[in-house]
Design a protein around this nucleic acid. Structure first.
Lengths: 166, 166
DNA sequence: GTTAGTGCAAACCTTTTGCAGCTCT
DNA sequence: AGAGCTGCAAAAGGTTTGCACTAAC
């Protein structure tokens, strides 16, 4: 991802102190960062760095095709997640019970892309496949939970996690 | 989608006047409705019907697996879109220039699903593939536009469409 | 008669904007 | 020097919540 530096310079984008910090964090941390986490991490390196700068930088990187935006099926809420764009396209597989995210690479994704391009004469710039369900581990746990709650009325889970006081 | 009525009853969900209106609208209108549009349409049938009820109903349908939630690559903003869940999984292909949405059905999607299930022992509940890029028509238009703007500095497009006065 | 669902107002979270001042190049 | 970037404060957009009242079963 530090490849982002030359990429940005080439576009006439200034490499500021703040952007350097953010770029390095994204590079090191890797997967599935949301703006707020990135902001918290960046603040430790530069307490003055503003949340707004994080959003602006992410937008810049997104439009420059250097990071991809995900939402992981809104498992954690309505925020977006970001990851360095890699050569290999992959799907995100997220467990709706434990939140674990797996990545899936494979031929079907490439084939899908090719078919869409030729079928519509479409020029693909970004693509994402997100899959939600239950991982092997949570499937068994859920079976147990179901017994307990089977008789209860429909439950629509709370949207945001209950706010915790410290 | 009117199949939703029995489906909901079976779960002990009450079929209220408001829900009937919303269900029928979703059924008739079909694809890619967002909450606000649905609300506007519903208000015409019942001016008292509240926006909140729309959100609550959509959430219910989503969790009941009767509608799927999309975001169409955030082309139109940060809202979500909804469509009746169909037997055939499909990908959404959206043009980032004109906003046109195409649907793609095909073997690679089914294969992808099967492979993910067997590879991780995962139980898939929902899946979505969204693809952004340029449709055949817009590709040519863009070529022209590019010439004009080639020399200009990097442009990050505005997030929300400029608010139009009437 | 219960219990779930509705409307209303207010809150909430995430993200964006306007603007004045700062800083890369 | 000067365009671009940042921080700050404020707003916006979309969505959710608490609560008292209403309506479906």
């Amino acid at each position: 991802m530090l490849a982002a530096k030359p990429a940005m310079k080439a576009k006439g984008v200034r490499l500021t102190r703040q952007r350097t910090i953010l770029l390095e964090l994204i590079d090191q941390t890797g997967e599935h960062l949301d703006a707020e986490s990135l902001y918290q991490m960046a603040k430790e390196k530069d307490p003055k760095l503003n949340r707004v700068t994080v959003y602006r930088t992410l937008k810049l990187l997104k439009h420059g095709g250097l990071v991809d935006e995900l939402d992981l099926m809104h498992y954690g809420g309505d925020q977006h997640y970001y990851e360095t764009r890699r050569k290999q396209e992959h799907a995100h597989v997220i467990c709706l019970r434990c939140g674990k995210v797996e990545e899936f690479f494979g031929e079907p994704l490439r084939k899908l892309r090719r078919q869409i391009e030729s079928h519509f004469g479409f020029q693909i710039m970004l693509a994402r496949t997100e899959v939600g369900g239950y991982c092997a581990h949570c499937q068994t746990l859920r079976a147990t939970e179901m017994e307990t709650t089977a008789a209860l009325p429909v439950q629509v889970p709370r949207s945001r996690p209950v706010k915790r006081t410290a």
